[in-house]
Design a binder for these strands. Structure first.
Length: 285
DNA sequence: CACCATGTTCCTTG
DNA sequence: CCAAGGAACATGGT
């Protein structure tokens, strides 16, 4: 369930549940998700550690812990990949089929499951340090955004997915932001004008913030058997039916554009689907 | 069987 | 060295 807004909502959900809890036992079912940390070091470090806090950075979760018998702090880095989920469940519950790591916190287990195992839970925090700015970072001005776009001839949609350029934008919200900004996903990044850069950055922030606000108001079911935790897919999760209407272009190929009624088009860019309105979103200014 | 999927990383090519 | 394109990772849904 992975773009910035979903990770943000998850962080706020987990933070109060984890704070102060001590890890009694560690079970690793898929060593791959720890990479590059070894299972031995992972277990040794986490056993007896206490959760102090939880932050989000881009699509990453940063769990702040205190080492057992020490005042030394350290971080655990989490990423949900495409299909990862993290939640607390009673220790008596059977582990889910694709459980990757289970941390016993006493009466509850912290479960990290991931069907495709693309995600990570690791002591190596370096990935978070390579990220570009958060979209609404005050120091990340439209001018700086444009300066970064200037260095590439790739389509602007592809650059929005570059986590070192701007952190947290994924395939869904990239299409949504471009639609809101009236910019074609095919426009070359180095042809984005100052005006367009400002509009696009604003659109990214707005789309992200609205998704966070929306996700925060939906009764989330991170551990339910039926729900896969994808609260932004209304069709899959009943309670969020109205949310899917927030997505104006994503997965709407052939459907009428909300602004002009002409059909939404699907194209492939960098091996990913992009959805846009060829009439409302201009290739050039 | 075919194709699709919210992400990142590695390898190759130019 | 760099930018860009594509495959790989692994599983499940339609």
């Amino acid at each position: 369930m992975p773009e910035l807004p979903e990770v943000d909502v998850l962080a706020r959900h987990l933070r109060p549940l984890l704070k102060g809890k001590v890890i009694c036992a560690v079970e690793v079912r898929r060593e791959k998700v720890l990479r590059p940390t070894s299972p031995a070091l992972f277990k040794k470090t986490l056993r007896g550690a206490k959760f102090l806090g939880l932050q989000r950075r881009g699509k990453y979760l940063l769990f702040e812990l205190r080492l057992a018998d020490s005042r030394e702090k350290f971080f655990l880095l989490g990423h949900l990949g495409m299909t990862g989920r993290m939640y607390l469940a009673p220790k008596t519950d059977p582990f889910p089929k694709h459980a990757a790591v289970i941390l016993n916190l006493g009466a509850k287990n912290f479960i990290y499951e991931d069907t495709r195992y693309f995600g990570r839970l690791t002591l190596d925090v370096s990935a978070a340090e390579k990220l570009g700015p958060e979209p609404w970072d005050k120091k990340f001005t439209p001018e700086r955004f444009r300066k970064k776009l200037k260095t590439s001839r790739q389509p602007v949609k592809v650059k929005l997915l570059d986590q070192s350029l701007i952190a947290g934008v994924g395939n869904i919200y990239a299409s949504e932001a471009l639609f809101r900004a009236g910019i074609s996903p095919r426009r070359a990044a180095n042809k984005i004008s100052p005006r367009a850069a400002k509009k696009l950055l604003s659109a990214v922030c707005a789309v992200m913030q609205e998704a966070i606000d929306c996700g925060s108001t939906i009764p989330l079911n991170f551990s339910g058997r039926k729900s896969d935790g994808l609260f932004y897919f209304g069709r899959a999760v009943d309670a969020s039916e109205y949310y899917v209407e927030r997505l104006l272009v994503y997965d709407r190929a052939g459907q009428p554009c909300a602004k002009c009624q002409l059909p939404i088009k699907r194209i492939i860019q960098a091996a990913r689907s992009t959805f846009y309105c060829p009439h409302c979103q201009k290739d050039e200014e």
